[in-house]
Simulated assay, not measured.
Amino acid sequence: MNFHTRKWIKPQDLNPNQTLFGGRLLEWIDEECALYSIIQLENPKTVTKYMSEIDFRSSAREGDIIEIGIEVVKFGSASLTLKCEVRNKMTRETIIMVDKIVMVALDENGKPKPHGKTRVEFVKDRLADK
């Protein structure tokens, strides 16, 4: 799994229990998956269609640094299925696991648009082809 983004837990990210608010974490995961999928599918109109069961395994506290990892599970005709793990950067303890997140590329009318991708591509390789 590749860990692309780090977040520093600040006071505004906490719940009344003084641990990381789950909704904030899910917002970060959704944004990270969207950015990753937009880049992979080369389509800025890529949206979240589905998120499977969310497994909160531990928590994070103010001052902790967490990292968000994403892995491609499968390419569909208009979709990209990912899995996600968020962990504490310093201890490597898993905070949350999401086994299945489906992102869908859309056309100008908001309908699924086939993307023609079958494997993970890196931007540096696309630039080398030009």
Rank of each mutant, 00 (worst) to 15 (best):
T81C: 05
F122H: 13
W28S: 02
S77L: 04
K117I: 13
D13H: 15
D129H: 11
V123D: 12
D30G: 06
A105D: 10
T91I: 04
I70S: 01
T81G: 11
Y50V: 10
R119K: 15
T5A: 15
E53N: 12
P114F: 14
F75W: 05
P16I: 15
V120Y: 01
L127A: 10
T46F: 01
E31C: 11
K83P: 00
K100A: 15
I9E: 01
I29Y: 03
E93Q: 13
L20K: 01
L20P: 06
F75T: 06
K113N: 14
Y50P: 03
Q18N: 15
T91N: 10
K45E: 14
R119P: 00
I29L: 14
K130P: 08
D129T: 00
L35S: 08
I29S: 12
E93W: 04
G23M: 10
K83Y: 00
A128T: 13
R126S: 11
K117G: 07
T118E: 03
S58C: 04
K49N: 09
T19D: 07
L82A: 05
G63S: 01
L35N: 03
K45G: 05
K100C: 07
Y36M: 03
F75R: 08
L106R: 06
K111W: 00
M103R: 02
I96N: 10
H115S: 08
K111A: 11
V102S: 07
E53M: 13
L82D: 06
I54R: 12
E32V: 07
M51R: 14
M1I: 01
E67L: 06
D13Q: 03
R119G: 09
M1R: 08
T48N: 05
F56D: 01
R57H: 09
P11T: 07
D13W: 08
A78D: 04
R92K: 05
I96A: 14
Q40R: 04
N43P: 13
C33D: 02
I54K: 14
A105W: 09
N2F: 06
D55C: 11
L20R: 02
K74A: 13
Q40H: 05
E27A: 13
E121Q: 14
F3D: 00
V120I: 12
R57C: 10
D55K: 15
S77I: 11
G110E: 08
I68C: 08
M103W: 08
A128G: 00
L106K: 11
L127I: 15
P11S: 06
L106M: 10
G69L: 04
C84F: 07
V120R: 11
E108Q: 12
T46Q: 00
K113A: 15
L80D: 05
T94P: 02
E93T: 15
T5N: 10
I29C: 14
P11K: 09
V98M: 10
R61Q: 05
E62W: 01
E27Q: 13
K124N: 06
E31Q: 09
L127R: 12
D13N: 10
R61G: 01
T94N: 04
R57T: 10
E62L: 11
L82W: 02
G110N: 03
E67M: 10
I38T: 09
P112F: 08
K10H: 01
T118V: 15
R57G: 06
S52Q: 07
E93I: 06
